[in-house]
Every structure is written in structure tokens, then in C-alpha cells.
């Protein structure tokens, strides 16, 4: 599978989805006006990846900001991971939040309560 590697911009995150690596990354800011346009290729990619996933998939989410338009799209990404996990593959979501950023921690906890995939909440220095 061709990896998806996207450089971050002030409004969209850095994406590193590489089926050869087993660690997928989503990092930076996700505040585009049209989030669906940005996330659709990622969701489609995971749709294909789930047919033949690695035994262990780790997804690292290190977002500084995300808008409500992205929040739904991020859920769609996680739903694909849930399917992979349900098919008895090892999946983990590492949710990073900056020290003092309770809003970001709570956002991660929201996803954790909706998606049946193990989450790890990781606090980072500001």
C-alpha cells in the first residue's frame, strides 16, 4: 500500500500513515473549513488497510487544536480502527495533550468512551 504522507499547514495536520511502519501519526492543527475534503482520503486509505492490517497498529494523535468540523472526521478515522480491532488485531490510540490542556484531554476521553479501542492518554510538557 502506498503510504499517505502530508505536510502540515497552519490549518491542516501532518499525516503519516505508512502500512510498512505500523505507527500512524496525526499531528498539528486541524481547523480547515472543509474537513471532509481533507479527511476523506485518510478514511478511504484505512478502509483498504483494514483488509490486510499489521498485527499491531498504533495511532499517535498529537493535535494542538481541532475544530468541531474535524471532530466528526476524526471519529470516522477512529471507527475504521475500531473495525480493525474488532477483527482481533492489536490496535492502540495514543492521545497526546499538553499539560494544562484539559479541553484536549476531555476530547480524547470523549472518543475513548465512544470507540472500542484501547486509548492511552499522554501528557506532554507545554
Amino acid at each position: 500500500m502506498e503510504p499517505i504522507i502530508i505536510e502540515g499547514t497552519p490549518k491542516t495536520p501532518t499525516v503519516h500513515f505508512d502500512s510498512g511502519a505500523g505507527v500512524f501519526k496525526l499531528e498539528g492543527r486541524s481547523i480547515p473549513e472543509n474537513s471532509v475534503e481533507f479527511y476523506k482520503p485518510l478514511v478511504d486509505w484505512l478502509d483498504k488497510y483494514k483488509e490486510n492490517p499489521l498485527p499491531k497498529t498504533t495511532v499517535e494523535v498529537k493535535l494542538e487544536y481541532f475544530n468541531t468540523s474535524s471532530s466528526k472526521c476524526i471519529l470516522d478515522v477512529f471507527k475504521k480502527l475500531e473495525i480493525i480491532h474488532k477483527a482481533r488485531n492489536d490496535v492502540e490510540i495514543k492521545w497526546y495533550y499538553e499539560e494544562d490542556d484539559e479541553d484536549m484531554l476531555e476530547a480524547g476521553e470523549d472518543y475513548e468512551s465512544i470507540i472500542r479501542v484501547p486509548f492511552e492518554m499522554i501528557e506532554t510538557a507545554d
Partner: peptide
Amino acid sequence: IKEFYKFILHHQKITPKGGGGLGLVD
């Protein structure tokens, strides 16, 4: 409000505008 947010996030289909009505709740 937190429960309301989670409910919309989980159950409401994404709109062509993308937000699904979460902005004010957020």
C-alpha cells in the same frame, strides 16, 4: 452540555458544511 456534545458527535451525520451543529455547543 458535555453529554449533548458527545451525543451530537456520536449520532449526528456529518453535514455538507462539516460541522454537524457542534460549534455553539463546543
